[in-house]
Amino acid sequence: MTAIPNLIIETLPEFLLHAITLERESVERYEELGDSMEVHNNPQIAAVFRKLARYGELHANEIEQHATGLELPRIPPWDFKWTTPESPETGDMEQLHYLMTQGQALIFALHNETQGRDFYAHVAATSTNQEVRELAAEFAEEETDHMNWLNAWIRNLADPDSVSPEDLDPPNVTE
């Protein structure tokens, strides 16, 4: 993997701050998406996002354990070493739709996990700090597990490629 200049993480506290932020922002985003789907009367997809938030929460707690006793740096949101506009597992909000299907929601989540895996893999391949490299490789493995789990879930769907149903009362029809 080629190193992206200026995005190389050298110390354990810096890496853990990135990892914790990645996981916490992902949980918050899934909660927010769950709320949003609930408000727009799409309870099935709200439940999918809630489930993803619950799993994310467990993972975030686990990662936070690694930081026990460490003083983490303070980094402004815009100076994090992401290659994505936000932290890698928050997803592209534009992909959302109030009538989105389970297949679409899971593909959205899979994309997030892939970006998370890529972030950790980049750190594992480029950090000059051995401890950071090893931990990042471990986290990349875990993200790969999440991707496998999501892929299995997608495969088990009756219709993974389903498109959003037609809205018979779309919001942009003038009364």
Partner: peptide, 24 residues
């Protein structure tokens, strides 16, 4: 309070940016 904005609305990101700025 759950925002009523349509999923995909850019205003969610403004909420996120405002709260990040205040926390920063």
């Amino acid at each position: 309070i759950k925002p009523v904005w349509c999923p995909g609305c850019g205003d969610f990101s403004v909420l996120s940016a405002v709260t990040k700025a205040l926390a920063h």
